[in-house]
């Protein structure tokens, strides 16, 4: 097995302050960054705080910033770095720091509460719900979301502009809104919510959310832009506005 020594610069500290600390550890073939962090925990820093669960890219717990890029620790393989390169691991910037690599992501759980639930219409006469594969596929893409909140972390609207947090739900929840908005059986109109409370207009579609998504969901193209387009029809289309004024629906 090919083993090599790597140098890791890991952020250690809490809200009061901290610094990057260097660790030298052995990396074995096939290892991911999370394995190396675990090796540091086991041998050099037992109290190094990091969240993780499944270690298979399915739960979205181990979000952090590796060499400045928001990524999952468990899905970043060590062999993607140049040998001898010092690898910097920092906590997500957008959320308040708890300790070391763990941040307080309750912002996201608060935003989740603001989205009204799925509200289906009446059932079919035979008591079933009929939906077709082509109709559920769009929503299914968004439901692949593992809630790692990397998209929320990278989004400059809140990453660099703290003051926007109350008025902006972030890409993860635009995706949720898009899913419900496109749901063939949902009866609730969420366009007003998306525009006003969730602050979709803040998004300038610079696509970083899509770039960092570990599930490769096309957040911008398939969720945000279609949602923007639906809002255009509802609020910003002069022809639609005019037609409605004269009573055409």
């Amino acid at each position: 097995m090919a083993a090599s020594e790597v140098t890791m610069r890991v952020w250690r500290g809490d809200a009061k302050g901290g610094a990057f600390t260097e660790y030298r550890v052995q990396s074995q073939e096939g290892m991911v960054v999370l394995d190396v962090i675990h090796a540091i925990q086991a041998t050099q820093a037992g109290d190094l705080a990091v969240r993780w669960n499944c270690k298979a890219g399915k739960c979205g717990s181990c979000s952090a910033e590796i060499n400045g890029k928001p990524r999952l620790l468990c899905m970043t393989r060590m062999n993607t770095f140049t040998p001898g390169e010092t690898i910097t691991v920092a906590p997500m910037k957008t959320f308040p720091l708890i300790r070391d690599l763990a941040t307080d992501v309750s912002f996201n759980y608060e935003k989740a509460k603001t989205i009204p639930a799925f509200r289906p219409g009446p059932k079919e006469p035979d008591g079933t719900r009929r939906m077709f594969q082509e109709d559920v596929e769009r929503g299914q893409e968004f439901r692949k979301c593992i809630e790692c909140f990397l998209c929320q972390d990278v989004c400059h609207v809140i990453r660099d502009h703290e003051d926007n947090k109350p008025a902006f739900a972030g890409p993860r929840f635009f995706m949720r809104l898009a899913e419900l908005e496109m749901h063939p059986l949902d009866t609730h109109d969420r366009k007003e919510l998306a525009r006003v409370k969730a602050g979709l207009g803040f998004c300038n579609i610079t696509k970083c959310c899509t770039e960092v998504c570990p599930e490769h969901i096309h957040i911008t193209d398939n969720a945000i832009i279609p949602l923007k387009e639906r809002i255009v029809t509802e609020y910003y289309d002069p022809v639609v506005w005019l037609l409605r004024k004269i009573g055409v629906r």
């Binding site: 952020w11 809200a15 912002f107």
Partner: peptide, 23 residues
Amino acid sequence: MKNEPFGNQRGEVIPRATLRTDA
């Protein structure tokens, strides 16, 4: 028990524009 959910405390801790090392 919780930090302020809409606050950000790391911004001041790491005052660099980016930690990215790529071009």
